[in-house]
């Protein structure tokens, strides 16, 4: 009963917009570093680039987060944990893949222990290329994700 009401309400475009707006501006990110794009995670979160301006707050507990940054390469050993962490996050959840390695395996095309692209393990929403991408590129990735979230469940035609 309740879920039906919820569904109805969600179909009202106006309410959906408000919900999406709220989601887009409060993306909390899990602290999980998988590769050498890691230090830029610090760079973008601290005073100079400060992604908290866009509502993206790094947070230690993954149960309360809805954004997962894959910072660079994912190894086969890590891939299982990435999947586990992704499964533990509450819905709705979004993934931004940072760096060439997360997108395609990039630099490590011939390595025996690197997964060639994190999208073989978990679905990815936004790819940010670069080796490593500058914090500005991270910010652009976040903005793109926000655009995507704002369109969710609304047929723009």
């Amino acid at each position: 009963m309740l879920s039906k009401v919820r569904e109805r309400l969600m179909n009202i475009k106006f309410l959906r917009r408000i919900l999406n707006w709220g989601r887009a501006w409060s993306l909390w990110s899990v602290h999980l570093e998988t590769g050498c794009c890691g230090p830029e995670d610090m760079g973008r979160a601290c005073a100079r680039f400060d992604t908290e301006r866009f509502g993206t707050l790094p947070f230690p507990t993954l149960r309360e987060c809805d954004l997962l940054f894959i910072t660079g390469l994912v190894t086969k050993k890590m891939a299982k944990r990435v999947r586990m962490i992704y499964d533990q996050m509450p819905d709705p959840k979004y993934v931004i893949a940072i760096g060439e390695c997360a997108a395609t395996g990039g630099f490590y095309w011939d390595s025996y222990s690197v997964v060639q692209g994190v999208d073989r393990v978990i679905p990815v929403d936004v790819y940010v290329p670069g080796c490593p991408p500058r914090p500005e590129a991270w910010i652009q990735g976040i903005k793109m994700l926000q655009e995507k979230i704002k369109k969710e469940g609304i047929d723009e035609k």
């Binding site: 998988t34 590769g35 390469l73 190894t75 050993k77 890590m78 944990r81 630099f107 490590y108 011939d110 390595s111 025996y112 222990s113 690197v114």
Partner: peptide, 21 residues
């Protein structure tokens, strides 16, 4: 080992100057 990439092996697959990065 969560970030083991096998760089020592990869280095054997590349010429000297390619190995810098």
């Amino acid at each position: 080992g969560y970030t083991h990439r096998g760089i020592e092996k990869m280095a054997e697959n590349r010429i000297y100057i390619q190995n810098i990065p």
